[in-house]
Deep mutational scan, measured.
Amino acid sequence: KNAAQIVDEALNQGITLFVADNRLQYETSRDNIPEELLNEWKYYRQDLIDFLQQLD
């Protein structure tokens, strides 16, 4: 998997990933985040941060 796929997957589930103060953050109206997504975000944290910062 790559960062773009993970960001896309999150968006499809109503979750927006973004970077604030060099930390990976998310916004969602969901009550909870599936644990497998959280684990994936932790595992790919630096890739996601790098990818999202390139988009800014």
Rank of each mutant, 00 (worst) to 15 (best):
K1Y: 04
K1T: 04
K1L: 04
K1Q: 04
K1N: 04
K1D: 02
K1F: 04
N2S: 15
N2Q: 10
N2C: 13
N2H: 11
N2K: 13
N2E: 08
N2R: 11
N2I: 09
N2Y: 09
N2M: 11
N2W: 08
A3M: 12
A3T: 04
A3P: 13
A3V: 09
A3H: 02
A4N: 06
A4C: 09
A4M: 09
A4Q: 13
A4R: 13
A4V: 05
Q5P: 02
Q5V: 07
Q5G: 05
Q5D: 08
Q5I: 07
Q5E: 07
Q5K: 08
Q5T: 09
I6L: 11
I6E: 00
I6F: 02
I6H: 01
I6R: 02
I6Y: 02
V7G: 01
V7W: 07
V7Q: 03
V7M: 05
V7Y: 14
V7I: 12
V7C: 05
V7F: 11
V7T: 04
D8R: 15
D8W: 15
D8S: 14
D8H: 15
D8E: 15
D8A: 15
D8C: 15
E9D: 08
E9L: 04
E9R: 08
E9F: 07
A10I: 02
A10D: 00
A10M: 03
A10S: 04
A10N: 02
L11T: 08
L11Q: 09
L11R: 14
L11S: 08
N12Y: 10
N12L: 14
N12D: 10
N12H: 13
N12K: 15
N12C: 12
N12R: 15
N12E: 14
Q13T: 04
Q13H: 13
Q13V: 08
Q13P: 00
Q13F: 13
Q13W: 13
Q13L: 15
G14D: 05
G14L: 05
G14M: 05
G14T: 02
G14I: 02
G14N: 05
G14E: 04
I15D: 01
I15F: 09
I15N: 00
I15V: 09
T16H: 13
T16D: 05
T16C: 15
T16Q: 09
T16V: 14
L17E: 01
L17I: 05
L17A: 01
L17C: 05
L17P: 00
L17T: 02
L17D: 02
F18W: 07
F18K: 07
F18G: 04
F18D: 02
F18A: 05
F18H: 06
V19C: 06
V19W: 14
V19F: 15
V19E: 03
V19H: 04
A20D: 09
A20C: 15
A20K: 15
A20T: 11
A20Q: 14
A20H: 13
A20L: 13
D21A: 06
D21P: 01
D21C: 13
D21G: 08
D21Y: 07
D21V: 05
D21F: 07
D21M: 06
D21L: 06
N22F: 07
N22K: 07
N22P: 01
N22A: 08
N22Q: 08
R23P: 01
R23M: 15
R23Y: 10
R23I: 15
R23C: 14
R23Q: 15
R23H: 11
R23E: 15
L24Q: 00
L24R: 00
L24S: 00
L24V: 06
L24N: 01
L24P: 01
L24W: 02
Q25R: 11
Q25C: 15
Q25D: 05
Q25G: 08
Q25P: 01
Q25V: 11
Q25E: 09
Q25T: 07
Y26R: 01
Y26Q: 02
Y26M: 05
Y26C: 07
Y26I: 06
Y26E: 00
E27M: 14
E27G: 07
E27F: 14
T28G: 05
T28R: 03
T28V: 04
T28S: 10
T28A: 07
T28Y: 05
T28F: 04
T28C: 05
T28D: 02
S29R: 11
S29M: 12
S29N: 12
S29H: 11
S29L: 12
S29V: 09
S29I: 10
R30M: 10
R30C: 07
R30G: 08
R30F: 06
R30H: 08
D31W: 06
D31A: 11
N32H: 14
N32V: 13
N32E: 13
N32L: 09
I33K: 01
I33D: 01
I33S: 02
I33H: 02
I33E: 01
I33V: 12
I33G: 01
I33N: 02
I33F: 05
P34E: 05
P34V: 04
P34D: 06
P34F: 04
E35H: 08
E35D: 10
E35N: 09
E35Y: 08
E35M: 11
E35L: 12
E35T: 09
E35K: 09
E36W: 09
E36Q: 11
E36D: 10
E36K: 08
E36P: 06
L37E: 01
L37S: 03
L37C: 03
L37I: 06
L37K: 03
L37P: 01
L37H: 02
L38D: 03
L38T: 06
L38F: 09
L38W: 07
L38P: 02
L38H: 05
L38S: 05
N39E: 13
N39P: 03
N39T: 10
N39I: 12
N39M: 13
N39R: 12
N39G: 07
N39L: 13
N39W: 12
E40W: 04
E40T: 09
E40G: 03
E40P: 02
E40A: 06
E40V: 08
W41I: 10
W41F: 09
W41D: 00
W41N: 00
K42F: 14
K42P: 02
K42C: 15
Y43C: 07
Y43V: 12
Y43H: 10
Y43T: 12
Y43R: 13
Y43G: 05
Y43D: 06
Y43Q: 13
Y43L: 14
Y44M: 05
Y44E: 00
Y44G: 02
R45H: 11
R45D: 06
R45N: 11
R45E: 15
R45C: 14
R45L: 14
R45A: 13
Q46N: 10
Q46Y: 07
Q46G: 06
Q46S: 07
D47G: 07
D47T: 12
D47C: 07
D47N: 10
D47A: 15
L48C: 00
L48D: 00
L48F: 00
L48G: 00
L48N: 00
I49N: 02
I49D: 01
I49V: 07
I49A: 02
I49P: 00
I49Q: 04
I49C: 06
I49E: 04
D50M: 11
D50L: 12
D50Q: 11
D50W: 10
D50H: 10
F51Y: 15
F51S: 01
F51R: 02
F51C: 02
F51I: 03
F51A: 02
F51T: 02
F51N: 01
L52N: 00
L52E: 00
L52Y: 03
L52K: 00
L52T: 00
L52W: 02
L52P: 00
L52M: 04
Q53V: 13
Q53R: 13
Q53T: 14
Q53I: 14
Q53C: 11
Q53G: 10
Q53L: 15
Q53S: 14
Q54E: 10
Q54A: 12
Q54R: 14
Q54W: 10
Q54I: 09
Q54D: 10
Q54V: 09
Q54S: 12
Q54Y: 10
L55R: 15
L55D: 09
L55N: 12
L55Y: 12
L55Q: 14
L55V: 12
L55G: 11
L55F: 12
D56E: 13
D56M: 13
D56G: 14
D56W: 07
